[in-house]
């Protein structure tokens, strides 16, 4: 690679990719609900993006491209981590941590932190977090990040019909979770 090529890569990286970092971090945080995991995920996504920057077409949708890289990194990490069930009873977590040697149970510490953060977070964040990751992802991409169905379909590698049905179910589940809270704040949904 010549110096000029590296300069070009750096320029694209700085001007087109780095401005997306807040949105990317927000997405990563709502996928993992753990600041360290979100940091790792964003860093991994950016380093991969830099490595494969030649496949990015300048002036196209940098945000969607980065989100796709991050989503793939998340799925790979998630698969590695979830040999065990994703949800465990709190008592079970405490018992595991009372064992003399907990080196084999490192993934449980994330879960305990997730449970703690869930208790401390606000109602909406809790409700979104309670959605299964496949529903949470489409909701975040559409309602928080403002991606269109077609963009979400490309980011997640699923048909547009799947995006629409997941979004429909995610919103309905969220409405159920939030019904009482929303009504108490003056937002109403009387459809039942």
């Amino acid at each position: 690679m010549t110096v000029m090529e590296k300069n070009t890569k750096d320029k694209i990286f700085e001007e087109e990719l780095m401005p997306q970092i807040d949105a990317l971090y927000n997405f990563a945080y709502h996928l993992t609900y753990n600041e360290e995991d979100a940091n790792d995920l964003v860093q991994e996504a950016y380093l991969k993006a830099y490595r494969f920057i030649a496949s990015y077409e300048v002036g196209t949708n940098a945000k969607a491209w980065l989100f796709k890289i991050l989503k793939n990194a998340f799925i790979n990490n998630y698969r590695k981590k979830t040999k065990q069930p994703t949800r465990v009873d709190y008592e079970e977590v405490v018992n595991y941590h009372n064992e003399e040697d907990d080196t084999n149970y490192s993934s449980y510490s994330d879960m305990r932190e997730e449970i703690f953060q869930g208790m401390m977070g606000d109602e909406v964040t809790n409700a979104v977090n309670s959605l299964d990751v496949s529903f949470r992802t489409v909701l975040l991409l559409c309602d928080v990040e403002g991606f269109k169905y077609e963009e979400i379909s490309k980011i997640l590698d699923v048909p547009i019909g799947t995006v629409r049905s997941r979004l429909h179910r995610a919103r309905n589940m969220l409405k159920e979770h939030l019904k009482e809270y929303a009504e108490s704040k003056g937002f109403t949904d009387k459809r039942g």
Binding site: I21, N26, V42, Q43, A182
Partner: peptide
């Protein structure tokens, strides 16, 4: 003619610097 609910973390400067 006949008179829809749409629900924020910021990245740390350390992470930005680390990536750069």
């Amino acid at each position: 003619k006949n008179p829809e609910f749409r629900i924020r973390k910021k990245v740390s400067p350390n992470l930005v610097q680390s990536i750069k």
